[in-house]
Amino acid sequence: MEVRTIKVFTTVDNINLHTQVVDMSMTYGQQFGPTYLDGADVTKIKPHNSHEGKTFYVLPNDDTLRVEAFEYYHTTDPSFLGRYMSALNHTKKWKYPQVNGLTSIKWADNNCYLATALLTLQQIELKFNPPALQDAYYRARAGEAANFCALILAYCNKTVGELGDVRETMSYLFQHANLDSCKRVLNVVCKTCGQQQTTLKGVEAVMYMGTLSYEQFKKGVQIPCTCGKQATKYLVQQESPFVMMSAPPAQYELKHGTFTCASEYTGNYQCGHYKHITSKETLYCIDGALLTKSSEYKGPITDVFYKENSYTTTIK
């Protein structure tokens, strides 16, 4: 009895394709271990004539594949690729409408935090270190965002349907971005203890939790000093293409032309909904596939993004 075979390709990165001759009487799992086709788990399936010449994702289970996976995804987590594939199996079914010149995501599976993050990423200057993220990001900007969303979920250790947080998501993504040249110098002034300067680099240099107003941050924000008295913390120097200011959701007025974009969060910790506000020729609110415009805006804002380049204080 002759062994019926077909020729397929296996890959971990969709760049390096490895030619395989597979036995049609055995499952993919018996031949390769966990195997995925377009995100779908085909591990328990036997090869079919229609699979001839198709590319299958496999887990990096030998040295060659491990090197290829690390170079593309910059992670050695053995569960990463499987999590990416199972997320992709959902995100490829989502709709990605162009809204006001940006790629958004039609609401499904509690994905409003991903839509808000995706919209924000198209408006701030950011370059990702893992080629996987950078490639998928370019495709997302062009309207094909399924891979990018699935990668975000995998890097953030999230599953489809789980509630997510924009600030946490951005923080994970910033860790995989090139923020080497970003720098922030802060000064804390206390009447009792004097003053202390701190220099922050990388992710810490672009994120701040405690106030939404970048102007206020430049002037000074009140913080408790270690001595128990009130101290003032203010920005001395900022070198970065953008800054992200966050605070627990509270009524906040966004003035046209003073910011790049913002995240609105309605609801409580267990259950809520994100919308995205962007400042173009007027203010726009993007909620999944829905767009509304207004000249002014007041609502429960939790993150505001500002364009920056270089700032030095005039406070002496």
Rank of each mutant, 00 (worst) to 15 (best):
K219W: 03
D303W: 00
T266V: 10
G220D: 05
D38I: 09
L235V: 11
Q123P: 03
F80L: 06
V8C: 12
H256V: 14
G39S: 14
A231F: 01
Y214W: 09
T226E: 13
S295L: 13
I124Q: 03
T198V: 14
H48E: 14
A154Q: 04
H48L: 14
T64N: 13
N110P: 05
T5E: 11
L290K: 14
Q238H: 03
H51K: 05
T292Q: 11
E296M: 10
V99F: 14
K233T: 11
E296L: 12
V189A: 11
T116S: 09
V203W: 14
D23Q: 13
Q216I: 07
N129C: 08
W94G: 03
N14S: 12
D41I: 11
E144A: 12
P241A: 11
T282N: 11
L114G: 04
N129G: 09
Y252S: 07
M24W: 07
K307T: 15
P78T: 09
E71Y: 07
V185K: 06
F80C: 04
Y284Q: 13
Q251M: 14
G272W: 00
K127A: 12
C227I: 01
T260S: 07
F217C: 06
A69Q: 11
G143H: 05
I315C: 14
A132C: 07
C227Q: 02
K201R: 15
T199A: 08
T292D: 09
K219R: 13
H51F: 05
C271T: 06
Q230I: 15
F217R: 00
F56A: 06
N268T: 10
D287F: 01
S79R: 13
L17H: 12
T312A: 10
L121I: 12
S171D: 05
P130V: 08
C285Q: 12
T10K: 13
E2H: 09
Q222K: 12
E281F: 01
K158E: 01
K92R: 14
Y155K: 05
A87F: 03
I315N: 15
L173P: 01
E253I: 09
I15L: 15
H276K: 01
N16C: 07
T312D: 08
V21A: 12
M245D: 01
D165A: 06
L151P: 05
H176K: 08
L17D: 07
R83G: 05
I45H: 11
Q251P: 12
V67Q: 13
P47S: 05
T192G: 12
G267A: 11
T11A: 06
F56T: 05
